[in-house]
């Protein structure tokens, strides 16, 4: 593939308390090109923190250290907070898991989407409105004019998530970090949302980091997969080869899944090996 859009080397995220330091992400290195990269892992594996640390969204007392976080040739760690605001949304967008907490409850949905557009372009209000409605249409919201003028509490969870996605896509970012974007959605809507993201990758050459716990979905949707455990990358492979993964953790996860077509008497239970935590992180470069 082409040259990487995002390069991350030796990334650490630490949370220090009085008693001890919790290391959420422990020295991982990876790169993302104009492709779909899936990050899978269980809760607490550090996958969400990885996404947040790229945009410098890890809150105090969390601390992010890395040898290198380069985006499109630009050193993100060297940017001031003001310059960082220009990167967020415009160049790199983040879709978070829960729309309930990521939309402003006292602002109309449409105004929030227009704002995202106007902050990064010089568009007029009317232009932003028509563009927003277009975007709402694109994420399959029926009656977008009505939704434009509603407040977040007036829309359902699935619709809220689609609104978030519309908002993140309207500034046309080069890289989209999607943190469990579809886990709250119905299957039919989920498919539609994935199609929209897929199209942006294929047609506009957007890069996508798709954070998820759903192995089947990642295997079928992404180009490459990064598997995280205990803050480290334990394995990386092409998505269509995930079924042949070698690491015992990945194998364990795959075997723990019930299968529609092959009935099993008992599901195999994952036996965790303490060695996995100690093993060095695998580099996931292009």
């Amino acid at each position: 593939m082409n040259k990487p859009l995002l390069e991350v080397e030796d990334l650490w995220v630490r949370f220090a308390s009085k008693k001890r330091v919790v290391e959420a992400v422990r020295g991982i290195s990876f790169s993302v090109g104009r492709e779909r990269v899936g990050i899978v892992g269980e809760s607490g594996s550090g996958k969400s923190m990885t996404g947040r640390s790229i945009l410098r969204l890890v809150r105090h007392p969390g601390q992010v250290d890395a040898k290198k976080i380069h985006f499109d040739g630009q050193d993100l760690q060297a940017l001031s907070e003001k310059e960082m605001r220009d990167v967020r949304g415009h160049k790199i967008s983040l879709v978070m898991q829960d729309p309930k907490f990521s939309l402003n409850p006292v602002m109309k949905v449409g105004d929030q989407i227009s704002e995202a557009y106007r902050v990064h372009t010089n568009a007029s209000k009317a232009e932003a409105r028509s563009r927003s409605i277009e975007m709402l249409n694109a994420v399959q919201i029926r009656n977008p004019e009505r939704v434009y003028d509603s407040y977040p509490h007036e829309v359902s969870g699935g619709m809220g998530q689609r609104i978030m996605i519309a908002m993140m896509l309207i500034p046309e970012p080069d890289l989209l970090i999607a943190d469990e974007p579809t886990s709250a959605l119905d299957v039919t809507v989920q498919r539609r949302v994935l199609q929209i993201m897929d199209k942006l990758v294929q047609e506009r050459g957007m890069g996508l980091i798709f954070i998820s716990h759903d192995l089947n979905l990642v295997a079928s949707f992404c180009d490459r997969v990064i598997i995280m455990y205990g803050g480290r990358i334990v394995e990386t492979c092409r998505a269509d080869e995930l079924q042949n993964a070698k690491h015992p953790y990945t194998r364990g996860l795959l075997n723990a899944l019930p299968d529609i077509h092959q009935p099993k008497d008992q599901l195999s239970v994952l036996e965790r090996d303490p060695k996995w935590i100690e093993d060095p992180s695998v580099d996931a470069f292009l």
Binding site: E42, L253, Q266, V269
Partner: peptide, 11 residues
């Protein structure tokens, strides 16, 4: 629940 824990509970 996570898939590994899901397997335990279903069992």
């Amino acid at each position: 629940l996570d898939v590994s824990v899901q397997a335990e509970i279903l069992n």
